[in-house]
Design a protein around this nucleic acid. Sequence first.
RNA 1: UCCUCGGUAGCUCAGAGGCAGAGCAAGCGGCUGUUAACCGCUGGGUCGUAGGUUCGAAUCCUACCCGGGGAGCCA
Length: 498
Amino acid sequence: MVYITNLSDHVDEEVTLKGWVYNYRSSKNLYFVELRDGSGICQCVVAKDAVSDDAWEAAEALRQESSVEITGKVVEDERSIGGHELQVTDLNIFQVAEDYPITPKDHGVEFLMENRHLWLRSRRQWAAMRVRNEIIYAIHTFFQERGFVQMDAPIFTGNAAEGTTNLFETEYFEEEAYLTQSGQLYGEAMAMAHGLIYTFGPTFRAEKSKTRRHLTEFWMIEPEMAFYDLDMDMDLAEDFITFIVNRVLDRCPKELDILDRDTSKLCKTAEGGFPRISYSEAVEQLRSDEMAEMLDQMVEDRKQEAEELKEEREEIKKEHGQAKKWRKAQIDQRVKEIGMRLDEIEEDLRNIPTWRESALNFEWGEDFGGSDETLLTMKYDTPILVHRFPAEIKAFYMKRDPEDEKLALAVDMLAPEGYGEIIGGSEREEDLDTLKKRIDEHDLPEDVFQWYIDLRQYGSVPHSGFGLGLERTVAWLCGLDHVRETIPFPRMMGRLTP
RNA sequence: UCCUCGGUAGCUCAGAGGCAGAGCAAGCGGCUGUUAACCGCUGGGUCGUAGGUUCGAAUCCUACCCGGGGAGCCA
């Protein structure tokens, strides 16, 4: 089979492509069919006098997403998508598709989500799934090349592991069971067997969160390393992200282009050298005069941008009356864009005082909110690592800082451009008695954790690990504004189909 | 759970007390290089649901349903 992505190897040859009609245009004796075969899109030109009557009739019958087999000569053509086009000699229909619901025009989120099974065929969704695939490949490559063993943690668990978040409950042969919220504890057991391991699997959270960063079912990658301390953990997390970003920049230029991703910021990340700041330093930054000034400047910038947009809107609206039809459509489109941006600015202007308040009045000991995270990352182009959090807001298994008992040896990696926390990790408590004490302090049942406690009983060693959220990583690298576009069939509050 | 915005043709939206509208899609016709093609014609409606106010409600009021964005929580 010849695929569109390989057409450059077949210039001037006659080939047969099999695929679906992405879009088509016609004039009296000429048909332009944009054919989609999964690997790319190619314009196929059907000239009436170059094909049989049957083939011409078939071309006339084509509708969006009809499945076809098209034969023709490959020619280079700069005007065409992908740089090549097919001069058609024959065309056979598998099936004519009637009334395909997703047209090349605008659609709303609700409609597209209802038609997710078809939306996946659209170019941007296609590109996002390709990037997701490349990220997954990069993750396995990174760990496999470093001697890590991939393991699968169980999905059914008998206990609410960390006792904090809402888990999905289910029944397991008359017993109560939960869907896993993390494979980490099991990863620790495997790390004591193999030294270096990573899990790659689904994770479930029953939080009633309706935001652009939340899914109820998402995929997490959790490496766990025996004999690693927090610094080694952070080094690995940084190398890991740097590796993934380099792979995506290297191997997905076409996809990033389709997604209109501004790659200049990703290039900075690809060089590594992520800033590392302690939680206490982060709190100081939030409360600083500098932060207040930055926020005031943001308000000014937004206001000025709004003024400029309104002026532009007035200008083009004046032109609308005597404009030609195509220009009118262009103006309408731009007016719509301006309106959407103005809504965003308006929302920002409403929110910034709240962000300002949250940041400037931040008390040591609280956890960061979404806006605090965004503000902390704002002056950097790369992700940042925030470490040594108040132990009280972190999980029971995290080791305390020997230099300050109030602190846990935890680390969060915050992605730039407002994408928030993509990694959470820590050095684990390895002392038997201390771990028992923590379980007790958190009011967790010791019996269900007995196997976990055993890991400290038999050859306990210092060890660390972290968890990466796959969908947030995909969203960040693709520049998508919602995680629902980063997974084929997203599961979120109020969405169980398709 | 709370705050906020929305639901009008298959889709995207306008209409904000007085005749239900546009663009795209669909159907028909035209056009030899289009590329969200273009031009002409045609068909297309439970204005989210239920009540209320009014001579008259898509428009005002109340309740409910569904969706978007955000808070809390988190990756």
